[in-house]
Simulated assay, not measured.
Amino acid sequence: MIGYILRRLAQSILVVLVVTIIVFILLHQLPGGAARAILGPRATAAQIADFNVQNGYNQPLFVQYFRQLGDWATGNFGFSIKLNQSVSSLLVQRMPKTIVLGLLSLALTVIVAVPLGIYQAVHRNKPFDYIATGLSFIFYAAPTFFIGLVAIEVFSQNLGWFPPEAPQSDGVGPIFAQFDAMVLPIVTLALLSIAGFSRYMRSSVLDNLDQDYVRTAQAKGASPTRVLYHHILRNAMIPIITLLGLSLPAIFAGALITESIFNFPGMGLLFWQAAQASDYPVELGVVIITAFATVAGNLLADISLAVLDPRVKL
């Protein structure tokens, strides 16, 4: 197990390094270079030359890369001239909110999708299975912004059940103090994942229902409930564990749209505003953090798979 974890850790570090190289290359492919992109089109040649000297952009590329890599490793992602604030401080302010939003939506996804997939598999080809399958296809195909706008129109404007805007105060505390304002963002972000997870769970349970170990347990007199929850569930959860690790990029992509729709001051809204203002240091910082979180999530998923399924180590 230790050797497997070390190998996966080494692979994860390599992936992060590859991502930093790609980000570094893209930074130098900006029209006019990083200086022109950050200072704007009205910057003079003297200002651009001075900016390049101050930030080391006049040095060889390999020197710039290792200097940039050292800055990223220590949490220094540059300075946002547009917001007059360091990118690190912006990320520290916004990241906890996006993490809370993502975790709450992921928890709702697992709570709803796993029992739903199991129930569909046990009652396959029944009316409930057909209805749930149809709804899953609809929500899986619907864009996140469409679901969010419909949720605001129906549950906020027409019914008045929930506020149309997420909590605006700083810190994580207001999220729970005004939790009614978080219901629509959480549900909007979770619906797409619920649709996908429930389909995977249904297929996984159906695959395991036909395995020899299920028939053996039934022949020994085990009750259907015991067979389902003590034998099938553990093996059926293996694809879901993989999906949890792979869902981090999708959650952030959905958070970008969801936070923009509900004006939720997290990393997604920060990235959206930075893209509109061409605030490249902020965009690069968010991309690096998201890449690191994605690799870390995949690593945790691989370790969890090794614990649940010893065949993975082989």
Rank of each mutant, 00 (worst) to 15 (best):
F155T: 01
S156Q: 06
S156F: 01
L159Y: 14
G160N: 11
G160T: 09
W161K: 10
W161G: 13
F162W: 06
F162L: 13
P164K: 04
P164W: 03
E165D: 09
E165H: 05
P167G: 07
S169D: 14
S169L: 15
S169R: 14
G171V: 12
V172T: 13
G173I: 11
G173F: 11
P174H: 00
P174N: 05
P174R: 05
A177P: 06
A177C: 03
A177T: 14
A177E: 13
Q178G: 07
Q178P: 07
A181K: 10
V183F: 01
L184P: 04
L184G: 07
L184D: 00
L184Y: 03
V187L: 13
L189R: 09
L189G: 01
L189D: 09
A190V: 02
A190S: 12
L191N: 08
L191T: 05
L191Y: 05
L191E: 02
L192A: 14
L192W: 12
L192K: 12
L192P: 01
A195P: 07
F197L: 11
R199G: 03
Y200P: 01
R202L: 00
S203K: 03
V205H: 02
V205Y: 03
L206F: 06
D207T: 00
L209P: 04
D210N: 13
Q211I: 00
D212Q: 14
Y213M: 03
Y213S: 10
V214Q: 01
R215K: 12
R215A: 14
A217N: 00
Q218W: 01
Q218P: 01
A219S: 12
A219T: 10
A219R: 02
P224V: 03
T225E: 08
T225W: 11
R226N: 09
R226A: 10
R226G: 02
V227G: 10
L228D: 03
L228N: 03
Y229S: 07
Y229L: 15
H230S: 15
H231M: 10
H231F: 10
I232S: 02
L233F: 15
R234H: 09
N235E: 12
N235T: 09
A236P: 02
A236M: 06
M237S: 14
P239M: 12
I240V: 12
L243C: 03
L244H: 06
L244P: 04
G245D: 04
L246N: 12
L246G: 14
L246Y: 15
L248D: 05
L248N: 02
P249A: 13
P249Y: 00
